[in-house]
Simulated assay, not measured.
Amino acid sequence: MDEILKNQTFGIHAIAAAGSVALGAALTYPLDTIKVLIQVGSGSSKQLTTVQVLNRVQTLSGNSGIYSGLGWLMLGRIFGVGARFGTYEILTAFYKDGREDNYVYVSEAFMAGIASGAVESLISSPFELIKLRAQVTSASRIRSSAAVIDKTALAPLMARLLPGYSPDMRTLDHYVGLLSTLTGKHPNMTGALKEYPWMMSGSGRAPSVCDVRRPLDIISLEGWGALWRGLRSGVVRDSIFGGVFFSSWQFLHQAMLEWKAVDMNPPPRSDEEIGPLSPLAVSLAAGFSGSIAAAASHGFDTAKSRSQCIVLPKFISMERRLLKWKLPGKRFERLTGIHPADRNILLRGIWTRMARSGLASFVIVGGYFLGVDCLASK
């Protein structure tokens, strides 16, 4: 009987947690789309505004374009946030072991949050990549069918790397014309160029993000490692976010407990004697902590978003490994995955991300308490 009750309790908490994470992701997804498009669409000389982003998405994809990629984010958030809180609870259990008051210090919460954030980044990175490319596609113009050739005329190698994709024949013919001044005896220069992967787009550049957004296309053209592109900046981002989030939340939680115990007579000897805080107070503390953590880690979030928006075919990655290509930038930038060209735009979209993270944290914690109460009462 005890095992059945334990399993039922675990199921209630798991359902409430998954539902609250999904609800938080759905409610804040428009802010996430705006944030991503500002990050990847802004340059050092220009900055997109929220109104410009919304108008562009609505013009090209309609009102539903603001929710493009929502399913991938919800799936990644359920696993990622679950891993973050699960890892945090496991680590803090070791800290609290043997203590009478079941207390966790702020410094301990910070260290546990760093480790839990790193675990979350490893799990959620593939889902974020697919989600981001869906968001970018919703604000991008798709090539007209007049500029592409028939899919049956694709070269075999190109068809294997990116099934269903057709190069721009106008651009390809232009580059063939540039090569016509060279001496050569090849009877079919256009067909030969089509066989080379770097001429896939007809211009020697990699295909657009809009053409490489499905999981199978990403794996086929860029390899499995592309799913974890920007992992350095992602790990640093989520580690900082987790550390600041849990440490500030623990600080606010302890401050509210001490405030509640001011008028108690006799003074409580432990936190258990004070009693639990209201779910609203805990949720507000979580929302405030989420906003602070988002501000502290936003620069690395921009670096990760911009790196995931780059299509890097696997044959180019292989050439870089063979040539021992070094990452550009200073040592700190190389370690954290920041590109030197992004130095002046790392804070783009920070207010949108702070609002999204704060609201999402409030909804997740508040929805969790509400879900547990509703399910337990049944």
Rank of each mutant, 00 (worst) to 15 (best):
L162S: 00
S64N: 01
K378E: 13
S124D: 11
L359C: 15
L178V: 11
P187F: 12
A115W: 01
M354E: 08
L370S: 12
F85M: 11
P340S: 13
D373I: 03
W228Y: 04
L347S: 12
S289K: 00
S20C: 02
D217Y: 06
I78V: 02
T352S: 09
G76P: 03
P279N: 09
V53E: 07
R214G: 09
D97G: 12
S239E: 03
G275I: 03
S307I: 07
G164I: 05
P313F: 04
E222F: 00
M158C: 10
T33Q: 02
I12R: 04
N102S: 10
A293L: 01
P268K: 08
L277N: 10
V372K: 01
L60H: 06
Y103I: 12
E333G: 09
T190L: 15
M74R: 02
A18C: 01
M200K: 00
T183C: 11
R353D: 14
Q135M: 15
L182D: 08
V262H: 05
R160A: 15
G349D: 05
G98V: 07
S138L: 06
T190C: 12
A255L: 15
P163I: 14
R334Y: 09
V36C: 06
V148P: 00
N344L: 11
A14D: 03
E258K: 06
L157T: 14
A118E: 07
D301E: 14
Q47R: 15
S20H: 03
K96I: 10
A16L: 00
